[in-house]
Design a protein around this nucleic acid. Structure first.
Lengths: 352, 352
DNA sequence: CTGTTAGCGCATTCAC
DNA sequence: GTGAATGCGCTAACAG
């Protein structure tokens, strides 16, 4: 088990010798690609334990073209830094599951535009599969991965997922959950503060799907909703709330999908003497608990468990890699309503 | 450059043939481990480009015992989840630099107590070096890594770093910077809200170093400081502020080293009618900008750039791995004061 | 300055 | 059911 410095690392041959069998038998015992008698299998296992044997990743990879390594593609575009707190949870979920299944996780942070680097990664054969994060509606990485014949799963969707595997948030369901929660509290005039126009243009599909979901849910609930885009910053949030109240004085609740802007929204509300949640309710979509707990009052949120999504994505990926795939898998995760302190009953001051 | 599906991945032999040289020459041209004439070197380079050649990681690793992969050990102990926002920045900094230097980053999230797993990782030879995060005063992983003869660098320090390489925050300097800032604003009665007792006992060395630093700096500045430990939660923060004001009614400024507790501190202050920063200043040590911007008002912080530390750690590690090391390297990073809105001049209400 | 060759540790095709 | 032999793609020691 523990090996003191200087000891040679044992190879399959060592195991074979100790178990009194040939190297190939050891190999078969490991891969299970051909029947081995129970007796020898046990002796081999014992020998491996005694020696603290671990198969050499390189030798195995060289021969079998399988590395047991999967890459997480998490581009860190400068203007997006800070979206990361939630993404971190995905990554950890993914890592958990990968490790459980005996896979390693390679963190790849090249920009989404570094297509050559990506092609290189794909070609090296270093990784068995790829988990694609921060997927755009039109995402050039997808083309590269398809060409390279590398197996991959998306966390999020592009414009036309077709037969691509993905795991994504069910934004429609999240929208409904959020709207229902607020209308149940008596809110009739809602505001929806989305990501910035630039983010929408950049193809953040989730922002668009969510907005449509909110619009639809509000229509069913006979609530009125004013939608705005908003720069991802405190200043952006301040401006957005001002603008929102200008457009609809009767707004009593805000659904926000813009983590960075939330503090701005809250402080602008405070400046106007609007207490949260007495005068104005705020609910954030897909905000990590981490962040939700940093605001005062703590933010009520709707969103799925990111870690679970990460795990699911890796599970799908491994199933593909190991050839146990059952056609295309596309999963949508339901959001959950986490009640904290930023939402409450509508004040009926000037509601018609 | 791009390779359409079906094309065989080119090997060194293909490159050699195309360049009209022997395979070994290609190898030497790549590793530079023996002189190659400029002319042939160029022809080889061209051939590689034409073919879109990428060396096979496994073959190289198998032969040379070097993988160009470094592992980041980032244990996710359950009770510590949430410390992560800052850690993320380290990891990204590390990843950036690794990729710049042609290294891959393996994310290893097994618990700090999963020593067997770690030993296995070390033994596999999969990684050239290890970046150890979340280092404890007494950290059993260190022993495992030493035994395995694996090169590693710590992000943080154990109790007795001796000849181990590390990169760490200069908590003493941070403490001085924080205390100086507050005393310059006229604050004479400070509070220091630290991590919880359990964290201290668990050997979070930084908490202890920082506390001592604050104590020292306050003494030099002739300021009085009341120190408390505090559970990492909103409730913990609320309790801590109450307790603090009980112990010293004259406190006008708080230095916090407990990210999760900060919102609690702030809301408890609000409940007592203490405005921030008019009545009470708050400054956080080593809080990521992400989090600092989520509070209202935005939090003034003191701390180093985490990404820079991550980069430096990887740089040190690679230097070691490549044998270019110049003895032991131990780096302390200075913190910077980032002025936001949570600190201001002392109100001289009941200061003696 | 360049070419030839022998493995690295494992998976797998043959033989038995 | 098991064993012996071959080669994955590359590096480095040996020969020129």
């Amino acid at each position: 088990m523990s090996r003191s410095a200087g000891d040679k690392v044992p190879t399959m041959v060592d195991v074979a010798r100790r178990a009194g069998v040939s190297p190939s038998t050891v190999s078969y015992a490991m891969t299970g690609s051909r029947p081995i008698s129970e007796a020898t299998r046990l002796r081999i296992q014992q020998a491996m334990l005694d020696l603290g044997y671990r198969p050499n990743v390189f030798a195995r990879g060289l021969k079998s073209k399988r590395s047991h390594i999967i890459a997480v593609l998490f581009p860190k575009n400068e203007h997006e830094r800070g979206m990361n707190l939630g993404s971190m949870e995905y990554i950890f979920g993914a890592s958990d599951h990968a490790q459980d299944r005996g896979y390693h996780l390679l963190l790849w942070t090249s920009g989404a535009d570094a297509l050559d680097d990506l092609a290189g990664l794909a070609q090296q054969g270093l990784v068995d599969g790829v988990l694609l994060m921060e997927v755009r509606l039109k995402d050039p990485r997808i083309e590269v991965l398809r060409n390279s014949e590398l197996i991959f799963t998306m966390l999020g969707q592009n414009a036309d997922p077709g037969d691509l595997d993905y795991v994504d948030t069910d934004f429609d369901q999240c929208a409904r959950l959020a709207v229902d929660h607020l209308t149940a509290l008596g809110h009739r005039h809602l505001g929806f503060i989305n990501l910035g126009a630039s983010a929408l243009e950049a193809g953040r599909g989730n922002a668009i799907r969510l907005r449509d979901g909110v619009l639809g849910a509000a229509a069913s609930a006979r609530a009125q909703v004013t939608t705005l885009t908003c720069e991802s910053s405190i200043g952006g949030g301040r401006g957005a709330l001002t603008e929102l109240l200008l457009r609809d004085r009767a707004v009593t609740a805000v659904i926000a999908f813009n983590e960075q802007a939330v503090p701005g929204i809250m402080s602008a509300a405070a400046d106007r003497g609007l207490r949260i949640p007495a005068d104005l309710s705020i609910l954030s979509i897909d905000m990590p608990a981490q962040a939700a707990l940093m605001t005062t009052p703590a933010m009520t949120t709707v969103g799925p468990t990111a870690a679970a999504m990460g795990r699911a994505a890796v599970a799908m990926l491994i199933r593909q890699v190991e050839g146990a795939a059952t056609g295309v898998t596309q999963m949508l995760f339901d959001g959950e309503l986490v009640l904290r302190e930023s939402t409450g009953p509508a004040a009926d001051h000037d509601t018609a």
